[in-house]
């Protein structure tokens, strides 16, 4: 644990705690519109510390809801990509040969699809819903994960302890789960912390385009989108969610980098 890991970790924890607890303590509701209170500016100690939006909804509660959803999307998407990516990559890498070639060409093909086009297709083909965004983001992220895991597996497969296991007759499944997978852990965990900010960005981008989270639900991306429309009269509607997004992304990036350094150091030992 180095310092940047501690600092970024505690800021993240703080934001997440406030995001989940804050709305419960607030008298306001994310749905509740109030046409007497449109576009109030932020006031510490006032009724609305982050102000209100163009429909008179409390921006603090909505921002915190945005943080919740953004982080949730990012984590679920990362877990999805982790599960698919590790399994896919480890199988392709360990079996090798023709299986590997076919599996990895499939990944290459998916890579070639234009991502936005892919998401729009999904949105058109199915109902717009929460789940779809997880799937869409996870479906993109697992490609990188699969490639990284496959590369690692290829080199692990040649390691002598795997050969020793093969020689004694340990089954393929057991070799993959007992000998290969645990040794992938370091790389994978580091990569996951680096994919989370990526997933956050993608989700925000989709929401900003109006393809992601739909009203009255919201995410940081959707809030920024709404803020852009009110930029001239009510700059706080843009600045507050944008600042939150920036801080969260920075923290995740720092955390991931620190994590990578920590694991690199252990490998060298």
């Amino acid at each position: 644990m180095n310092r940047s890991m501690k600092v970024s970790g505690s800021i993240l924890l703080g934001i997440v705690a406030v995001a989940f607890i804050g709305p419960l303590l607030s008298p306001h509701d994310y749905l509740q519109t109030n046409f007497d209170n449109l576009l109030q500016s932020p006031a510490i100690g006032g009724a609305h510390i982050f102000g209100t939006d163009d429909l008179g909804r409390d921006l603090f509660v909505r921002s915190m809801l945005g943080v919740q959803i953004t982080i949730l999307v990012a984590i679920v998407a990362s877990v999805v990509s982790l599960l698919i990516g590790v399994t896919y990559g480890a199988i392709a890498g360990y079996l090798g040969g023709r299986v590997d070639a076919v599996m990895m060409r499939f990944v290459d093909t998916l890579y070639a699809l234009p991502f936005i086009f892919f998401v729009i297709l999904l949105m058109v083909a199915f109902e717009r819903n929460f789940l779809l965004i997880f799937v869409a983001i996870g479906a993109i992220n697992w490609l990188d994960m699969a490639r990284i895991v496959r590369g690692q597996t290829l080199s692990l497969r040649e390691r002598e302890f795997v050969e020793a296991a093969r020689l004694t007759g340990v089954s393929t499944a057991r070799i993959v789960f007992r000998h290969i997978a645990p040794n992938l852990f370091g790389v994978v965990i580091v990569y996951v912390t680096l994919t989370i900010p990526q997933a956050i960005l993608v989700e925000s981008f989709l929401s900003f385009l109006g393809l992601g989270i739909q009203e009255p639900q919201t995410s940081l991306g959707a809030l920024v989108d709404a803020g852009v429309n009110q930029m001239e009269g009510a700059s706080w509607m843009l600045l507050i969610p944008a600042a939150l997004l920036a801080v969260i992304l920075l923290c995740f990036n720092f955390f991931g980098d620190a994590m990578r350094d920590a694991f690199d150091a252990r490998d060298k030992k």
Binding site: E160, F161, E163, A164, T168
Partner: peptide
């Protein structure tokens, strides 16, 4: 398979570090 076993050159590399 049981009857034929192998010992490798690199003692560290032939043991699963985990």
């Amino acid at each position: 398979r049981r009857g034929m076993q192998l010992v490798f050159q690199d003692p560290a590399g032939s043991l699963n570090p985990q």
